[in-house]
Design a protein around this nucleic acid. Structure first.
Lengths: 186, 186
DNA sequence: GTCTATAGCTAGATAGAC
DNA sequence: GTCTATCTAGCTATAGAC
């Protein structure tokens, strides 16, 4: 047993960055060798089921990170309501690097890979929407409106990522986060 | 010279459906053989520069269709303002099959293919935004607000496509189109 | 213009040395 | 645990017959 060149978390993080930017079909094992610093065979040693397993581990890591750093703030009834929103938006901005990074929902929802990952993607997005819904309710919104708003927020985040990428304007994303804040100011 | 099995427009349309759903990296020549009914060599005869040329021709076709069937209505000052919006939304719904189909902006904006197509994508999205902006101005909005709204509409369409796909709920897309209509009712 | 056949390459994946 | 070397399948692309 030689020493690990890179620990599990750092390995997953580097693979995550490649998958999110190139998508499942677009990323190759060669790409993952480069970004991780490990050779093919080492990657297969760490993830016996190959690219699919790597992607699943990435999804689990991301779900966990998002849950702990974004959704938990939205749902935390021990914090005051303003802080909950501020912290969540702050970490969303961090997570997407102000709109420069793409999202797994986008990178993994094209046809080829979709069928393999659709259950997990749906579950992940349901969690996002649920957290915004809870936040809306705690903000005093009617439950129906809270749910509608939650979906609208999700749509705005996803849309802003695509638009800011295509238009090469990160301001589109930052402005959208401000608009989301305003949505809950009223 | 044998007769064409499939004419240029039908050929492009079938290739379009494969590219939009699988993305540039996800679609293979084998996929395109199946969806078009032509063999590899015939596809290369029609598009000597291969998959890149096919994608470029698809983008040109789509830009043209969108311009004629969506953006032209938004901009047409000879129609009454309600009809302009109704017609545009109707054909958007048709174009995306009520949110079931994806969008080239999404399918082609992942890292690998992006650098090849980014100029065209940006140009295409600029046209969309410009048309909504013009519509907003003719609707009586302040030019600044008209521009802001135009970007918001683009974000909502793109976001709704991702969300409705991941959540497997076309209603998300149809509802979003209604929300866009409302945005201009006020 | 379409086809079969094939070239040449790169992909994902594995075997076995250290 | 990591590596070099290798396998096989699939990919893009081309040559040449009809």
């Amino acid at each position: 047993m030689r020493p690990q060149k890179i620990n599990d978390e750092e390995l997953i993080k580097s693979i995550f960055q490649s998958i999110r930017s190139k998508g499942f079909d677009g990323v190759s094992i060669r790409d993952l060798e480069k970004c991780s610093g490990l050779k093919k065979a080492s990657l297969y040693h760490r993830f016996p089921n190959g690219k699919i397993e790597m992607t699943q581990k990435v999804m689990a890591f991301v779900a966990d990170w998002v849950s702990q750093n974004i959704l938990s703030f939205l749902k935390d009834q021990n914090l005051d309501i303003e802080t909950r929103l501020d912290k969540a938006l702050e970490n969303i901005s961090l997570f997407y690097n102000n709109g420069e990074y793409t999202c797994l929902f986008k990178a993994l929802s094209l046809e080829n890979s979709y069928s393999i990952f659709d259950k997990e993607l749906e579950k992940g997005m349901t969690n996002w929407i649920g957290a915004w819904e809870q936040f809306g309710i705690d903000k005093g919104l009617d439950p129906i409106l809270a749910k509608e708003n939650a979906v609208k927020v999700m749509i705005q985040i996803q849309g802003a990522l695509t638009v800011s990428k295509v238009m090469k304007k990160n301001e589109v994303f930052t402005q959208t986060l401000k608009n989301i804040a305003q949505l809950y100011q009223l």
